[in-house]
């Protein structure tokens, strides 16, 4: 059984909409139809990157070292995540018991509505995913809000938004 996040009604697995309140129960992968505007750094990426080892597919050979970086779109700064298997994103406030691995305070996180523990990115050789950690303002992937505490796969060039802070995922 799955539980509707809106009204907590129990639904059969595979249901797409809650039969009780009509809420949508699945996250849509709209990235197939998404066109991102080319910006300068994309040209740069293009030259170097081969066709991406796209991750969830069966026949993709696991890559030994997967380099993942996050580019904060507003400030155009790049944060490298290499060598880690899980990173939490958020902002550090005084007296906070659990600190995020990556503090987004320098990017005006507060003003953009980033929670203290906002989201986690998991990196395995097979796939990279993001999970919202129950943030106040939610997390979006390519504009689509994701359900909290559920892994959502990420691809190269996906844009995630923590509150209003937009970050592009760069996978090499």
């Amino acid at each position: 059984m799955i539980t509707c996040p809106n009204c907590h009604h129990q639904e059969l697995p595979g249901a797409l909409f809650c039969s009780e309140c009509g809420a949508q129960l699945v996250v849509v992968d709209r990235s197939a139809t998404q066109t991102l505007d080319m910006i300068q750094s994309d040209y740069f990426e293009r030259k170097r990157s081969k066709p991406l080892p796209l991750l969830a597919e069966e026949n993709a050979t696991p890559v030994a070292v997967l380099s993942v970086a996050l580019r904060v779109i507003d400030s155009d700064e790049v944060i490298h995540l290499s060598g880690r298997s899980e990173v939490t994103l958020g902002r550090v406030v005084e007296g906070q018991p659990i600190l995020p691995d990556i503090d987004l305070t320098p990017y005006e996180a507060y003003a953009h509505g980033v929670s203290r523990l906002h989201a986690a990115i998991k990196i395995t050789p097979q796939r990279i995913s993001i999970m919202d950690l129950g943030s106040s303002n939610g997390t979006r992937v390519n504009g689509q809000k994701i359900v909290p505490h559920v892994d959502y796969p990420l691809k190269h060039h996906d844009v995630i938004a923590l509150g209003k802070l937009k970050i592009q995922v760069i996978i090499q």
Partner: peptide
């Protein structure tokens, strides 16, 4: 993970 085709999701 469920990847629901857009047309199906829209209709539903």
């Amino acid at each position: 993970p469920m990847v629901v085709p857009d047309a199906l999701l829209q209709a539903l």
